[in-house]
């Protein structure tokens, strides 16, 4: 029976959980990759999600199966439906001996604009139930260029601490030494296949030396992709400058308040001197009821951090695609000269 072995694996995982070695590698089955790609591509450009099933073995998280979620509607009754669907699917898959342990979720993205507050919230939700979970991001728009745009992400522990306390003031961030690069941790992906699948694929591989992948890679028109990337980049830049303005506003308010406090204090002091000279009790040097002592709320830095992350992501993509295009252009040039 496959079940007892699965259970013993789980027990092993549970036993090692106390030590909790850090998650090093996500090992994905080829089946899962194909399933994710199929689901994401069929619904592209709509963004879809699904659940990952697998095993947690030491520092390796094995993703052995997955199932898609139906596209969610806003209504509440449908939400309960979604939970039912999830349970039903898990039950059915268990019956055919699929690993019945949630290890995270996958989602599709458009040009890598996945770094959002929603993703962080979903991650925190998962994290509550599962010690180690992972989010796999797939970008269908990039697969047309012959790139397998799969990414495994998790939130860093330091960031999760801060997020739980909902504390994103500059001071706290400085204390933890957390910059925008440290929010997401990318985990290297390994791909594994069962011997049976590997045998089938070797048999079925076509004899032609050129595959679809090569055609896609050598495609010369990357302009639409780059254009959209730059468009998103500009939008993000706008957002970022909005955030910056918020901060400037905050600092201006802060310094104005400090100046006000100073003048008030000075006035109080001269008043107290006068009272002392007159032989009266001095007044206290701070007054909590005065509105100028109310602290100005500091805006959260989370948004600007996330936007910064997105911008750097777009930059990376532009660099990658431009690099590919250079090689293609020189290739075309060489071909023409011959």
């Amino acid at each position: 029976m496959a079940n007892p072995t699965v259970l013993s694996f789980l027990q092993v995982a549970a036993a090692t959980e106390e030590v909790a070695p850090p998650l090093r590698v996500v090992q994905i089955e080829g089946l899962v990759i194909l399933k994710i790609i199929k689901h994401c591509k069929e619904f592209s450009p709509a963004l879809v999600t699904g659940q990952l099933l697998g095993l947690d073995v030491g520092s390796v998280l094995e993703v052995t199966n997955c199932f898609p979620f139906p596209i969610r509607d806003e209504e509440e009754e449908i939400e309960a439906d979604g939970a039912n669907y999830q349970l039903e699917m898990m039950r059915c898959l268990r019956e055919v001996n699929v690993d019945n342990n949630t290890v995270g979720w996958y989602q599709s993205t458009l040009l890598g604009s996945f770094q959002t507050v929603e993703l962080i919230e979903t991650f925190m939700n998962y994290q509550e139930n599962i010690k180690r979970c992972v989010c796999i991001i797939y970008d269908p728009s990039r697969s047309n260029q012959g790139v397998l745009a799969l990414k495994a992400l998790k939130l860093s522990d330091a960031f999760m601490d801060l997020y739980r306390n909902n504390n994103f003031s500059g001071e706290k961030l400085r204390e933890k030494n957390l910059s925008w690069v440290d929010i997401f941790e990318e985990i290297p992906i390994k791909v594994s296949n069962s011997a049976l699948v590997s045998a089938f694929m070797t048999e079925l591989e076509a004899d032609t030396p050129v595959t679809q992948c090569d055609y896609d890679r050598l495609q010369l028109s990357t302009n639409p992709f780059l254009e959209r990337n730059v468009e998103f980049l500009i939008e993000c830049m706008d957002d970022l400058s909005m955030e910056q303005q918020k901060f400037q506003f905050y600092y201006r308010n802060l310094s104005r308040q400090q100046a006000q406090q100073q003048t008030w204090l000075q006035k109080r002091r001269t008043e107290n001197m006068a009272r002392k000279a007159a032989g009266e009790e001095p007044l206290p040097e701070d007054d909590p009821t005065n509105p100028i002592f109310k602290p100005v709320p500091e805006p959260s830095r989370l948004d600007s951090y996330l936007i910064t992350n997105q911008i750097s992501n777009y930059c990376n993509q532009i660099n990658g695609v431009a690099g590919q295009s250079f090689s293609r252009l020189y290739l075309t040039k060489a071909l023409h000269e011959n």
């Binding site: 080829g30 397998l148 076509a206 679809q212």
Partner: peptide, 30 residues
């Protein structure tokens, strides 16, 4: 075609240590 898109190199071996990134993929194609 779908399998070709992903790449048989990934699908037919028992274990691949790393998913190739875009420039590495370009290199193999070239």
């Amino acid at each position: 075609v779908e399998a070709e898109r992903v790449g048989f190199d990934i699908l037919k071996t028992r274990m691949v240590e790393k998913v190739p990134n875009d420039l590495e993929g370009m290199e193999t194609s070239m």
